[in-house]
Design a binder for these strands. Sequence first.
DNA 1: ATCATACTTAGCCATAAGGCTTAGTAAGTG
DNA 2: CACTTACTAAGCCTTATGGCTAAGTATGAT
Lengths: 113, 113
Amino acid sequence: MAKYDAKLDAVFTALGDPTRREILSRLARGPASVSELAAPHDMALPSFMGHLRKLEDARLIATEKQGRTRICRLMPDAFLPVTGWLEEQRALWEGRLDQFDDYVTQLARKREK
Amino acid sequence: MAKYDAKLDAVFTALGDPTRREILSRLARGPASVSELAAPHDMALPSFMGHLRKLEDARLIATEKQGRTRICRLMPDAFLPVTGWLEEQRALWEGRLDQFDDYVTQLARKREK
DNA sequence: ATCATACTTAGCCATAAGGCTTAGTAAGTG
DNA sequence: CACTTACTAAGCCTTATGGCTAAGTATGAT
């Protein structure tokens, strides 16, 4: 298990922006061209392309040029590292059966002082 | 379902950094003071505090001053919006039973031109 | 009272993020 | 061939991020 995972960095960061999350939601319904994707977003096209590039860098989407059009599609496997990490965290947390005891101990220690 | 969710922004962005993910992993094992948390990270304390602040802003951790020490603990409920969003995406994707058909259609359309 | 510890505040710096405009290029359309 | 469409490239701007040092405050220990 890597201590530092560049893939997680890229994916989490990509998901940290509402425009990019909306793009993913749209693509979950099926592939679309750049201008189709851009239409709902009040933003100049070059700015929008920046978001697509981040998503592609994170491997959340893949794109392919068809003539003068670029088709984008979702790559749902890119979510796996994320769900995996979240699952690890949940396991760690739930492994701590003494969590509440510790909290009580903290409070007691505080009161003593 | 909000089109823009500031909570998701904050949480995903907070998770997009390896230092911050390591802090969370440590806290999943139990509460810790700032300097305990900082010890494994080769970084000046003020820089490290910046990461803690982001985690606290995202409500992923909560902190409390005990004397001159600040105790940090994990707030695991903050993960719920994230797992919720991921689940929505999965549902969207899996709802598209015709995903593969569409891909074939795209290819066919391309070949026609 | 003095000293050490554990943050905390302030401010600087470099790079990245996220927006813009303006000007290309490549592919269809007539 | 001219014209439109769909990106693409270049460069500028502002703010945010992530790091630093240096100095300050508050608490605990002697």
